[in-house]
Nucleic acid binder design. Sequence first.
DNA 1: GAGTGGTCTAGACCACTCA
DNA 2: GAGTGGTCTAGACCACTCC
Lengths: 218, 218
Amino acid sequence: MSQRIAQGEWQPGGTIPSEALLARSYGCSRSTVNRALQELARSGVVLRRRRAGTQVATEPVHAARLEIPLVRREIENMGRSYSYELLSLEVCLPPERVAARLAVPASREILRVRSLHSGDRRPYQLEDRWIDVQVAPDALSQSFTETSPNEWLVKNCPFTQGTLHFSVAAATSGEAGHLHVESGDPIFVVERLTWLNEAAITLARMIHPASHGVTMKV
Amino acid sequence: MSQRIAQGEWQPGGTIPSEALLARSYGCSRSTVNRALQELARSGVVLRRRRAGTQVATEPVHAARLEIPLVRREIENMGRSYSYELLSLEVCLPPERVAARLAVPASREILRVRSLHSGDRRPYQLEDRWIDVQVAPDALSQSFTETSPNEWLVKNCPFTQGTLHFSVAAATSGEAGHLHVESGDPIFVVERLTWLNEAAITLARMIHPASHGVTMKV
DNA sequence: GAGTGGTCTAGACCACTCA
DNA sequence: GAGTGGTCTAGACCACTCC
């Protein structure tokens, strides 16, 4: 309905009519106008403030959306057959960097799980994950030999917020071996941090060969 | 309100009560329940189908959100001073790969703009952009010496959909020179394709030094 | 104080889809 | 056919913020 608004009918920076006026001129109810304008506000086309009204954004901040399936599904959706291998599992003291990201004392023992996800037997993702067993105690009873930590956590640990960070690095020799690339080759790094309210559940560093990419819709 | 729903009150795969029942048990109106459940559905916690009801997702597909400001704002938000340099501007026939991505005949002339965005004089992003001037004819009258194509497009070309693709590559010698890295070093690649209805407006390849990353909220 | 958007209620009709 | 969610209307009250 209000797509025309953004395409020039009103000037960037200008204030558009109030919900009540729009409702009358479009011949619909205020709720409908409200929903439409809230959608535009969420997509960054428009800024809304009480009393000040609704303004067309001068610098629209667009937002992109990324769907995050299970690694297994990601691979299966590419038409490849999924396989999973547990590399190591231990309870140990985290290095400083990890303790800091999880916001736990460095003296707390954390579960560390390293594993490899492959498609058609070719390495797809190397996962190095830390799980705070004080927040997710059930993780201790898992062997992670058949089900990956990724899959177990998604299905068993609801979370309230999380962050995802993409970056680039050069493969270390250990990483290169697992991913079947050369040491020093560029790799795609995904770091995932997940929280349940105020407590961090898990921190994962997941790396891919350079052929990997991530596509989002805007 | 319905946050408890996802935290175990109902089993994954199970069907939860209908909107009407929930409204009565929570003592609120059906519209309110509807809005709450639609939010849960958008975030992947719940699946909804008419007649079939609302089910708790067994494999929640979470969605992450990324805000995309102007490159200039990105740099300024880091507390660095922004500078911009136009490297080249020409109208030419696109290579096959570009024509295919833009879905235009290879015989159509396209505007190509190469530019560099820096923060505190250190290279931040090298931008190689193709603009279809049949879709955005005003672009032809721009010199792009002061305002970057990124900024001009965001402020002047509304679009209906777009994609964003992140990947990794090794810097070519030309790229390495502009970004002040070594040839072969890993670089962070962002490819952006933007559409106005059925016509592609612009395709951009934007590369960053390896220190760069992208953070999203889940 | 007055006007804006945020959010709720109560009620309605429809589209879909399962039995 | 019946029950579900999708979406709309009309009206209300409130929080905020500018004047």
